[in-house]
Structures are given as structure tokens and as C-alpha cells.
Write a protein that binds this DNA or RNA. Sequence first.
DNA 1: TCGACGATCATCT
DNA 2: GATGATCGTCGAG
Length: 229
Amino acid sequence: VRRMTLVQQLRCPGAAGGFAAARIVAVVPSPLPAAFFARPAATVARDLLGCLLLRRHEGRERVVRVVETEAYLGVPDRASHAWAGRRTARTETLYLPPGHIYVYLIYGLHHCLNVTTGGEPGAAVLFRAGEPVAGEEEMGRSRGLAGPGREGALTGGPGKLCQALAIDRALNAGRFEGPELELRADVAVGEEAIARGPRVGVDYAGEAARWPLRFAVRGNPHVSRPRFG
DNA sequence: TCGACGATCATCT
DNA sequence: GATGATCGTCGAG
């Protein structure tokens, strides 16, 4: 049912038959190989759309489908924590090999989940939003929600996603190969179904603030604000 | 040691 | 659309 829902969301208005925008690449989800992450951040960010993000916590599994990401290009990117080669206790994680987990606290309140990539040193991809696939009850409890809220209320934003998946800095510097966090290929999202735009909340970054490094599944209701595409 | 600020969110109007 | 919450991080002194 979830897969059908996604396919409907991926329908491309201009494509006859509607399925041109999505193709099933794996019936049985498979873990992403290390080579997947060892590419430029923008490429990884785009290809992560449609993948499954698994979180195992307290003996239970929570799963979301990735529907929104942002690429941070590292040293040459003023919006990146690794801009100009900055190395501090916090940013050290960004320089780990591709496929590592980078979690940091923002605004003193919220955690943000990233994965390191190839390309320039310090490059990474921020997970901005997911579509719940399994473990919605646990997510709601972690979020402190009474019942099922509007779409996007659970995992429609980087802070919400981390809270729903019980992700904090305890996971920082780990790897996306289980048991706590895992990424699996599942559905490839066609170019026609991908919206691109400038990244959120980086107005301070000068020219880099306008780089189109935000990626989302076009029209998916779980994509965070500001909506675009 | 100190001060300014942030890859956000919920709750207001 | 505006605002307050809340504290780790980092650069300046």
C-alpha cells in the first residue's frame, strides 16, 4: 500500500501512463553499498530520494522513505560547517570517509541528521524530510503527539525527523550500516519527479545560498516548508 | 571567558 | 507572517 501511495505521488503530469517518473529498482530493499556515498554530495542527495531510512531503537524498527534532502559541499561551500576547511571538535565528523553519520544540535533544541559523502572534503547530505513507512506509533510518541496529526507533522522537517526517529548526537560519527541506522535502496525517483531549489535557512552564505542543492519528491505532502517545486 | 548566532519548530496573529 | 524557546559552538578578546 505504501509503495502504491508513493507511485501515485510520483506520477508525472506530462507523462502518458503516469509511471514514467518512477521505476522500481528493487522489490526486496537492499542496503546501499559504500560506493553509493563515495560520490559528490549533490549526486548522493538526489539519489537518496526514494530510499528507505531504518532506525532500530529499543528493540523496535522505525522506517521512513526519504523525500527531501540538501547537499552541503564542504570546504568550498559557505553554508557548510566545513567551509574554508574549518576543523573543530564538532566538524571533525564531516571529514570522516563517505557513509558516516553526522548529527549536530541546532538552535539549542533540534538535532539534524547528515551522511558524509565524496566530492570535496567535508561534504555531506542533510536529511530534511521522510514519509513514515513503519513504526508511526513510536514516532508519534517520540514527537510527543497525542494522535495522528497532519501529514508532515511526524517527519516533515530535519528536526522533526530526528525527534521521530529518536536520533541525537549519541549516533554521531557512526556508520549507516546498522544496527542503529541503515539506508536501503527501494525506489528510484525519476528526474521529472524531483524538485530542486535553494537550501533553507542559509541566507548568510552569500552566493552559495542560491545554489540549487535542495532536492525533494515533487508534490510529496511530507516535504518541509517552505514548499517548492 | 564571553557574546552572538544558528542547516528549526510550535504557537501565536 | 512573526516570534520566542534554548544552548552548543566558535571566534574574538
